[in-house]
Design a protein around this nucleic acid. Structure first.
Length: 182
DNA sequence: TAGGCCATCTGGTCCT
DNA sequence: AGGACCAGATGGCCTA
C-alpha cells in the first residue's frame, strides 16, 4: 500500500516542541475559524462551536498540559496510530459496503459519498420489492410508511432468528435476481 | 490547472 | 484517566 504521509506536515510537530506547563489559548474572537460557527446535530449530539459543560467556549480557557514534552509526544504518536487504525477499519467497512451493492460501472471505484447514496437507494429498492412480494400495497402516507418499515424490520428479525444471517442474504440475493430478471 | 477525493494529523468532547 | 469519536486543516494524487 502506498503511503500518503505528508512530508512537510509530518515535519511540523507542535506537540514535540518545548512548551511551558500552561499553554495560553487564543483570545476569544482571535481564532482563524471565527465566523465559521456552524452547529450540526449528529446522533442526538450537538456539534458546533466547542464549549465546555458550563457553556464556556473552550477557546477562552487555559488548558492543562499533562506530562513532559516527551510524554506528550509519545501519547500523540499513540493516538495518531489509533486514529489511523480506526480510519482503516472505517475504510474496510466502506469497501465491504461497495462489494455488497450492485453498480454498473465496475471499473471505477465508488467514492464514499457515492457508496452511501447507492446503498441507501439499494435498500429502498429492496424494501419496495419485499413489500410488493409480501402482498402489501406501497405506503402512501408517512404513518403507513412507518408501519410498513416496522413490519419489514419484524420480518427481518424473525428471519434472522429462524434462519441465520447467511440464509437471509441468500434470500435477498434471490429477490434481487428476481427483480433483475423481471 | 482547478476541483474532487482521500489520508493523515490534531485537538477538542464524550463515554466507559 | 484513557480510549473512542469527531470535525477542521492540510497537502498529495488524479482527472477533466
Amino acid at each position: 500500500m502506498k503511503s500518503k504521509r505528508k512530508g512537510t506536515k509530518h515535519a511540523h510537530q507542535p506537540w514535540a516542541e518545548p512548551e511551558p506547563d500552561f499553554q495560553l489559548e487564543m483570545e476569544p474572537g482571535s481564532s482563524e475559524q471565527e465566523g465559521s460557527e456552524v452547529s450540526v446535530r449528529l446522533g442526538g449530539r450537538w456539534r458546533g462551536p466547542r464549549r465546555d459543560r458550563g457553556g464556556t467556549p473552550v477557546g477562552s480557557r487555559r488548558r492543562r498540559q499533562h506530562g513532559s514534552a516527551k510524554e506528550r509526544n509519545v501519547r500523540r504518536l499513540e493516538s495518531n496510530e489509533r486514529e489511523r487504525q480506526r480510519m482503516h477499519k472505517l475504510n474496510n467497512a466502506f469497501q465491504a459496503l461497495r462489494e455488497a451493492i450492485p453498480h454498473v460501472n465496475t471499473d471505477k471505484k465508488l467514492s464514499k459519498i457515492e457508496t452511501l447514496t447507492l446503498a441507501k437507494n439499494y435498500i429502498k429498492a429492496l424494501t419496495t420489492i419485499i413489500l410488493g412480494m409480501s402482498g402489501g400495497c406501497l405506503p402512501h402516507s408517512e404513518s403507513q410508511a412507518q408501519a410498513s418499515a416496522s413490519r419489514l424490520l419484524q420480518c427481518y428479525q424473525q428471519h434472522l432468528e429462524d434462519e441465520g444471517e447467511e440464509s437471509l442474504s441468500e434470500y435477498l440475493t434471490q429477490i434481487h435476481n428476481f427483480s433483475q430478471g423481471s
